[in-house]
Write a protein that binds this DNA or RNA. Structure first.
Lengths: 121, 121, 121, 121
DNA sequence: GTGGTCTAGACCACG
DNA sequence: GTGGTCTAGACCACT
């Protein structure tokens, strides 16, 4: 489980971590009931504060990605496989709706955007 | 020249203004040397602080969208028409590169992304 | 706006604060768009850490009770009056369902519970 | 003697056990001097740590629900039948006083609460 | 060992 | 002035 954080990013550290872990979960890279490393362990490895990791873990739990067993640790929540691919699609579509709005604002047609995609891919 | 801001948006107000004006400029909606309304006027209309407008104007000047004539006001910088469409393309492509990275992270292929575009458009 | 916290309570401080403020809001004691006191002010008055107040404010925002204006402060969210009484009823009923389960476990009938209510009121 | 525990519950495991056993005792489901199963047995069945069961047993002993005979095991304390029903009433009333306080805080009258009871029962 | 709460103090972004 | 983020370190509860 590799996590990479950049202190110069515009996004707060806890969110970078949240984004990466939630992505791994919806992509099935972390299996159901997988035990996440202890927050102190992650903190030491990434050389950032325990609090910051905890914050990321909290948001993941609140959004149903993981659950906590008192005194045991944090685990990947049970997701039905179809639910996961649904979630992936929802996340992608939500972002795309915003993105398309931006490109439209610049005067691009659907074809223009598709050209851009091919160019950028 | 209509500007709309929301004080509860996740984006800071000065950036909302920056985004809208820069968009109008690259889309040719504001012609070369067009005189922007006075800072105090905009501040009064939008009912926000002069400092906030000033900040947006500053960033627009820093990025070459506008220039200031002391004691006269702020004006849209001179852009050759082809330069404008170049700029539009550059902005769009820069964003698309980031966006595509995200969609790839979710496991989507170029075709998947194009499907998404059509769906969202 | 009076808040009372007890450091000996079984509930964490931030939750005591959350409970009291959310109660005031659903009871209409704090009007829509009311500006909450600054977290530093509350922290000083209650003689507890800014962080703890912030935590309470965060949960209130996440649950839609308040909203934040960058650089301005936190405000009571707009609630339609009927929505408020609905929310009150929902909160009360949710708790009662749990409570009744407990009393049933002790072997009490509905009449027994009602007697208890009268006695305790 | 069935005990059910959830490791993800908001209540600590030892307390879930305490609650269930104390309830069985005051309800007369476990007779006086009934010999509780050995700590290790319970631990194995519930697949939780011996320490956790021990903690529950300790609190039950502290509160006079059970007593320990060294080398023999733990037994349900002797309760006169009327004492048991008194205890049940005391427990119920103590909780109800707290509950009523909450409902009053939401602006409910005694009648409102009684309505709620009927609805929830 | 695990996570949950709280502290005191710092720095930054926004208005 | 406001809130948002982060730090380092402490203490507690649970297993």
């Amino acid at each position: 489980m590799n996590i990479v954080v950049s202190s110069t990013s515009e996004l707060p550290i806890y969110q970078q971590i949240y984004d990466q872990i939630s992505r791994m979960i919806v992509c099935g890279e972390l299996p159901n009931n997988y035990c996440l490393p202890a927050i102190r362990t992650v903190a030491k490895e990434l050389r950032i504060s325990v609090i910051t990791i905890k914050r990321a873990w909290e948001e993941l739990e609140r959004d149903g990605f993981i659950y906590t067993k008192a005194g045991k640790g944090c685990f990947v929540a049970n997701h039905a496989p179809e639910k996961l691919s649904d979630k992936r699609e929802t996340m992608a579509l939500e972002k795309m709706v915003k993105d398309v709005e931006y490109y439209k604002g610049l005067g691009l047609s659907a074809e223009d955007i598709i050209e851009l995609v091919k160019e950028a891919y």
